[in-house]
Design a protein around this nucleic acid. Structure first.
Length: 603
RNA sequence: UGGCCGAUGGUGUAAUGGUAACACAGGGGUCUUUGAAGCCCUUAUUCAUGGUUCGAAUCCAUGUCGGCCAGCCA
């Protein structure tokens, strides 16, 4: 196999069996260019499983100098809505932004392919304008519904060739005639209708003359095929319902198998990449295209295993159920595996891409480890997040050797991995808050933080010693009285003094209150539906915890879009929906790794 | 009792007839004004049985296990 002329990917570029096939097609000249597509049905929100398809299709376009069309596969008017169309477009743009956004195939708004009809074959060459925008022209994605005219003509051609017929069997009869996997089907009594009668009936179906379900258009293939999808599959069904784009113009709609391969063809797709469940449809995909005697190179279908992730559910049906039953706040609830949920949670698109790349592309039905996802998110955020101090569960601590109005200012680094991020001042006052967890009156072994009589460093400031523990009537610790050793500050005579623990803190008087929402995994089981159990029976009751936290003044008006690391706690950002400048609301994207908690939990 | 597809450490992926490797997870150490991060070390893998071959994770056969397919959904 020669690879000289093809744009050979760098050694570090992702490499998998589909990319290998694409490279081989380029090398052999089967396709002079690469054109993929991402074709979601607008009947729900995109989730992280779709991210794999997006990354594969756009990634191949990016890697091989091709284009990837965004196409809404809207052939079923009863399930699709414009709300979903808009969400899908936004999610795709978010995920590919800055990476493959120059590879997205769009078209001038309103552009349509030339219908096949009786015109010259070259009409198809003028089908949709791909990619770059003519000046002043708005762009939109491709829609399968834009091809309804062309598709109807293709169906007519199939009828003329005797390869499709109008069938009057009911849905139940059709099912019965189809047989079963281990038993051949029987020919429909309408299989031998004349071309003229089929043409007449099909035209009248289009005219809206017959009620829903009265007739279908079927391919004439082989009712005895061991592959069910070759047993005269239905190509068109009658549906008198409103389509979100074409309105009431149509009363019959093509099915997936007929629409998809031809949509691919019309758009000039070279590689039609889908998930494993369509493997058995491939012979039908090829049958339809090759039956039409089309002049251009035909697209080919390739299948890969969909992405599954532990501790979540992925099907649109179940996600819709969570939304409808109010178990989450919406499709963009930060606990949802939807792209809009991940985005709202603060997960960078780059991390989603890194995760998808880390899972590889195979034909093995795997469940990816949530730990890998969390790893790539932390990896990305650790490099980019701005460090800040915040106290989630405040415990008052009084530095008795400081005067009431005494303050000391210390520089705090904004990002230890990025010197150019600089520092900001933090101010120590007589009263501060520390994390409740950072004090233990009766500490377990190897507890490094504060204890009665013990010492600890306040991050960026100085070492303190705990002199006295104040409690309320119930025995609850309500205040710590401590002494600050200001000489242990950076540059001070005791600067080199070592203590085991360093804890975070905020000034009581200068910090501000902020709502903080902590998210945890949504299910308590890695496979919520294992053994046929109801996934709603294993919801994690602690997947959301809301706290009144104290944050340093630099967080009072968080810049939108900026990721923070609250030191020693985790990665947070201001909720793009609920946060307001004077009332910040922080969402925890992900906690820091906590090996102490892990050790403490060991027997 | 049909057809198609798959099986490599705990998880996922690579090795394209020639030394089974990488990431995550796990374990140990080091460093540390984040019990984070970093750095160093480390445990652990070819579904089974035959065959072809100088040589098999890879090719062939059989078996086992798993997934998908009987929507007028996609």
């Amino acid at each position: 196999m020669s690879d000289s002329a093809a744009p050979v990917p760098a050694a570090s570029a992702p490499h998998d069996f589909i990319r290998d096939l694409v490279a081989a097609d380029l090398a052999s000249g089967r396709t002079p260019r690469i054109h993929t597509r991402f074709p979601p049905e607008p009947n729900g929100y995109l989730h992280i499983g779709h991210a794999k398809s997006i990354c594969l299709n756009f990634g191949i376009a990016e890697q091989f100098g091709g284009v990837c069309n965004l196409r809404l596969d809207d052939t079923n008017p009863t399930r699709e809505e414009t709300e979903y169309v808009d969400a899908i477009i936004a999610d795709v743009r978010w995920l590919i932004d800055g990476w493959a956004d120059d590879r997205i195939g769009l078209k001038p708004a309103g552009a349509r392919p030339v219908a096949s009809g009786d015109g010259p074959e070259s009409d198809f060459q003028q089908a949709p304008v791909i990619g770059a925008a003519p000046a002043g022209v708005a762009l939109e994605p491709f829609y399968a519904s834009d091809y309804f005219d062309a598709l109807f003509e293709f169906a007519t051609r199939l009828i003329r060739k005797g390869l499709a017929y109008v069938c009057d069997l009911s849905a139940e009869e059709t099912e019965r005639y189809r047989g079963s996997p281990d038993r051949p089907g029987m020919d429909s009594p309408f299989r031998t209708r004349s071309v003229e009668e089929n043409l007449d009936l099909f035209t009248r179906m289009k005219g809206g003359e017959f009620p829903d379900g009265a007739r279908t258009l079927r391919a004439r293939i082989d009712m005895t095929s061991p592959n069910i999808w070759l047993r005269d599959p239905v190509l068109y069904r009658i549906r008198h319902s409103e389509h979100h784009r074409t309105g009431r113009q149509w009363s019959l709609y093509p099915l997936y198998d007929f629409a998809h391969c031809l949509s691919d063809y019309l758009e000039g797709i070279t590689h039609s990449i889908c998930t494993l469940e369509f493997e058995v449809h491939r012979p039908l995909y090829d049958w339809i295209l090759s039956s039409l005697d089309l002049p251009r190179t035909l697209p080919r279908q390739f299948e890969f295993a969909r992405l599954n992730l532990g501790f979540t559910v992925m099907s649109k049906r179940k996600l819709l159920q969570l939304v409808n039953e109010g178990l989450v706040s919406g499709w963009d609830d930060p606990r949802m595996p939807t792209l809009s949920g991940l985005r709202r949670r603060g997960v960078p698109a780059r991390a989603v891409r890194a995760f998808v790349q880390g899972t590889g592309v195979t034909k093995f039905n795997a469940i990816s480890d949530l730990a890998l996802f969390e790893h790539v998110v932390r990896d990305e955020l650790n490099r980019t997040a701005t460090r800040r101090l915040a106290v989630l569960r405040p415990l008052k601590l009084v530095l008795t050797n400081l005067a009431v109005d005494e303050t000391h200012e210390f520089p705090a680094v904004n990002n230890p991995g990025d010197e150019s991020a600089g520092t900001r001042p933090v101010r120590l006052t007589r009263e501060v808050y520390i994390e409740r967890d950072d004090f233990q009156e009766v500490p377990p072994p190897k507890f490094f933080r504060l204890r009665p009589g013990g010492e600890v460093r306040l991050k960026y400031a100085c070492i303190i010693r705990c002199d006295e523990v104040l409690k309320d009537a119930t025995g609850q610790v309500i205040e710590l009285r401590c002494t600050a050793d200001l000489d242990s500050r950076t540059g001070g005579p005791n600067a080199g003094k070592k203590v085991k623990g360093t804890i975070h803190w905020v000034s009581a008087s200068e910090s501000v209150e902020a709502e903080v929402r902590l998210y945890d995994r949504f299910f308590t089981e890695e496979e919520p539906e294992a053994d046929g159990r109801d996934f709603k029976s294993v919801l994690n009751p602690k997947s959301l915890e809301i706290l009144a936290a104290r944050v340093e003044p630099a967080l009072a008006r968080p810049e939108s879009g900026v990721r923070f690391q609250f030191e020693r706690l985790g990665y947070f950002w201001a909720d793009p929906r609920d946060s307001q400048p004077e009332r910040p609301v922080f969402l925890r994207t992900l906690g820091l790794k906590d090996t102490w908690a892990k050790d403490a939990a060991k027997p």
